[in-house]
Amino acid sequence: MSDNERLEKWLSEHDGEERCKYCRYDDGCPHGIACYGGSPIEPACCYYDIKDYLDIEAILKDLEEENK
């Protein structure tokens, strides 16, 4: 199975908080839309392409470790 196929399979099986572990913006993320009296604060997953906020290499590395 290619890396792209393994990634697509992982993405289809994991969502929400399970993806946060691999998010480049996890530190300081509200993990949902938050509002503290001003404009709403949206997490990166609301507006970035998935490959721009997830650490794809880390996901693939962990998948490789699981298969050992």
Rank of each mutant, 00 (worst) to 15 (best):
S2W: 04
D3N: 11
N4H: 03
N4W: 01
N4K: 07
E5S: 07
E5K: 09
R6M: 07
R6F: 04
L7T: 02
L7V: 00
E8T: 00
K9N: 11
K9F: 09
W10N: 10
W10C: 03
W10P: 02
S12Y: 09
S12P: 10
E13V: 03
E13K: 14
E13N: 12
H14T: 12
H14Q: 07
D15P: 06
G16I: 13
G16D: 05
E17L: 07
E18L: 13
E18V: 05
R19F: 09
C20E: 10
C20I: 07
C20H: 08
C20D: 12
K21C: 03
K21M: 09
Y22L: 07
Y22Q: 05
C23E: 14
C23L: 12
R24H: 15
R24N: 15
Y25Q: 10
Y25V: 00
Y25F: 15
G28I: 11
G28D: 11
G28M: 09
C29W: 07
C29D: 07
P30Y: 00
P30R: 05
P30A: 01
H31P: 06
G32T: 11
G32P: 11
I33W: 08
A34R: 05
A34D: 14
A34I: 02
C35Y: 00
C35G: 00
C35D: 01
Y36W: 13
Y36T: 10
G37M: 04
G38N: 05
G38S: 12
G38I: 00
S39F: 03
S39K: 10
P40Q: 03
P40I: 05
I41T: 01
I41H: 02
I41N: 01
E42M: 04
E42D: 02
E42K: 05
A44L: 08
C45G: 13
C45N: 08
C45D: 04
C45Y: 08
C46A: 15
Y47E: 10
Y47L: 01
Y47H: 15
Y47R: 07
Y48T: 00
Y48E: 12
Y48C: 06
Y48I: 04
Y48S: 07
D49F: 02
K51A: 03
D52I: 00
D52H: 12
Y53N: 06
Y53C: 06
Y53P: 00
L54S: 10
L54W: 06
L54G: 02
L54T: 01
D55S: 12
D55R: 15
D55G: 10
D55H: 13
D55K: 15
D55M: 09
I56Y: 04
I56P: 04
I56R: 08
E57S: 13
A58Q: 14
I59G: 01
I59P: 09
I59K: 02
I59L: 02
L60P: 03
L60D: 09
K61P: 01
K61W: 03
D62G: 00
D62C: 03
L63T: 02
L63N: 05
L63V: 05
L63C: 06
L63D: 02
E64P: 02
E64K: 12
E64L: 10
E64F: 04
E65N: 14
E65V: 13
E65R: 14
E65W: 13
E66N: 11
E66M: 13
N67Q: 13
K68S: 14
K68M: 06
